[in-house]
Design a protein around this nucleic acid. Structure first.
Lengths: 345, 345
DNA sequence: CATAAAAATACAATCGATTGTATTTTTATT
DNA sequence: AATAAAAATACAATCGATTGTATTTTTATG
């Protein structure tokens, strides 16, 4: 009945053998005969034995736990990534502790302390918008706790990451607008000290350049890409002395609030101004016009980052890894960029 | 330097006292003098001591971990609830393991096994749509692991839950439609074996009854309330021999896909048919027309459920609790229900 | 059959914190 | 100063699994 109180000692006693043999058998050690192994496993199943991870982990000095730091769980991209992380982690025998930075550097630091106190075996991080200073990751390095950045990474030596090719995605998004006929394309960027936004911006410039369009400083709007920022950007943009006919926004949230503000101002998307977003939030397929955007496969990124992290944990500290995995992100063409055509469903 | 390797024994040695005294001091036991307590605490801080929870938990036979089972992390309501759970749990000194059932009974059962194997101290559950059979919760009961339902609960004796008043919310939503002028209101329900949907449905009927409208069986559409279900429901509804002028959907997802299908069919919301949803997904404020809906405060529900669970854990198994907390859910009036008026932003 | 080599299993310490019991130290009382 | 009572601290076992070393059993070989 009290099947959760069964220990290897109980099994040992019932079988008249030593608990060390039971332990070895259950860990499939070659030091135990196949025959006794089978007896032990049979008895363990019969009793409903479940290994006590606390004891095991204490002895082995590990926790089998991964820490995750994301800006915000409720963002679709991050909740998908977490789904991928959890699923992969459980499969590989790890638990997961999730922390939100809420885009605040201070909270990100305290998250790391929480994870340190919990002695996690490794950490997955997508940094906050405020993070320009990476000192708080030194604590992890010192204690030789491996960590992997996903999506929002930073350029410090000897770290690993799982990313999309933000340069290419920015390029694709911008080129798409150009092909659709845009000549004067604004870019709504996030903080440019973050690699992802820098790279998307570089991609934007490269696409302009390829198509012989000049980059105009006045068309770059950098913000935190919150809802209000999309509105503010549109207002600033409309105050310019020349016309804009396309917007590439580095996230969907700002793209959508921008579209709404444009509508309020009597400007038609995509006829007057075409819009491309980034991330493929659930809502983007549903609003009208539906939003052309870059699909960031959150689940895959989470899975891949977890696999990479666990492989680093298993390899031990033999070599400080510096691996970078690129996950493919494709453009999803919807109505907000169909310049010249009437949007249809 | 190796501050994560400091143990109570190190402190004891340096101070020439016994490790048991150190342990007691750090746990603020009255058996240690204030003076030595201070010396010990000072030394612990100096060395950057952090308690090894594995060892402590092994001895105390607990994990300080809560399990959470939700249908899907990426649903806005659940990710908000999880945010509330995590925040509260960390404050109270607990970690959290999150599992997704993906609305599948089988996965829900295996989630419970995962949590059992991890020896969680308590579980928070929002059951899947498939769950009609509650045997898998028996395992928790047998091992005296307390669990609290939140939002999607079930009617088994001796359990606790944190809910909104679904009856009242259903009543409010329906009455709102009636007040706006609807006379023939369809209800898109979830599986009626689930308490929440049953109660919302009862609220719907009660509102009709209060306003002397007959309940018509043909206007009840029960489904899993996925995107496709909203579309299917609309099609069935339009095939009826009489006109419908309002829809109360038990979630936003189905409400939104229904609105889109209505639009495709050339029916105007809210003029021809007014719509009220349930849950206040992020998207609901953004689509056009914006969706009138019931706001379920996910964060608060998560917080409250966690507090309840932890109090049960701390009380031990002295008495099987049977507490039910009701969190207020308010109607958010938006454009989709403004019958007779033109929707505006 | 004897004996060395190999295989299988038992013994015992360990991970770090906790806690009942035993011992030492301090305080109070005469 | 002696002694009992009380307070402070030390000792040692424990939680359950793991693992290096020691011992026993089995197998192989002459």
């Amino acid at each position: 009945m009290d099947s959760d109180k069964i220990t290897i000692h109980d099994i040992a006693k019932l079988l008249n053998i030593d608990s060390s043999t039971v332990s070895r058998a259950l860990n499939n050690s070659p030091r135990v005969t196949e025959k006794t192994k089978n007896r032990i496993i049979a008895k363990a199943n019969e009793l409903g034995y479940q290994r006590n991870h606390l004891a095991s982990n204490l002895r082995l000095n590990k926790t089998n736990t991964l820490g995750v730091i994301v800006p915000r769980i409720s963002r679709h991209f991050f909740s998908s990534a977490i789904a991928g992380i959890e699923e992969t982690a459980y499969k590989l025998g790890f638990n997961v502790i999730i922390c939100q930075s809420l885009e605040l550097l201070e909270r990100e630091q305290s998250n790391i302390n929480t994870l340190l106190a919990n002695r996690v075996d490794g950490v997955l991080v997508s940094i906050s918008m405020e993070t320009e200073n990476y000192d708080h990751f030194e604590g992890l390095k010192q204690r030789k706790i491996p960590f992997v950045f996903f999506d929002r990474h930073c350029n410090i030596p000897e770290t690993s990451s799982v990313l999309i090719d933000d340069f290419k995605a920015g390029f694709d998004a911008t080129e798409h607008l150009i092909i659709k006929g845009c000549q004067s394309i604004a870019h709504f960027s996030g903080p440019l000290h973050l690699e992802i936004y820098k790279n998307r911006f570089e991609g934007y410039k490269a696409a302009l350049s390829k198509h012989n369009l000049d980059f105009n400083d006045a068309l770059l709007f950098s913000s935190r890409l919150m809802e209000q920022d999309g509105i503010d950007n549109v207002n600033k943009m409309l105050a310019l002395s020349f016309r804009v006919d396309g917007i590439f926004s580095a996230n969907d949230v700002a793209a959508i609030s921008a579209m709404q503000q444009l509508k309020r101002e009597g400007i038609t998307v995509p006829k007057d101004i075409a819009v491309v977003g980034f991330s493929n939030e659930t809502i983007s397929a549903i609003i009208e016009p539906s939003l052309t955007t870059i699909n960031q496969p959150g689940f895959d990124i989470g899975r891949s980052a977890t696999e990479l992290l666990v492989s680093q944990i298993k390899n031990g500290t033999k070599h400080t890894t510096n691996e970078h995995i690129i996950i493919h992100a494709n453009l999803i063409e919807r109505n907000s960029s169909q310049k010249g055509k009437q949007p249809k469903d």
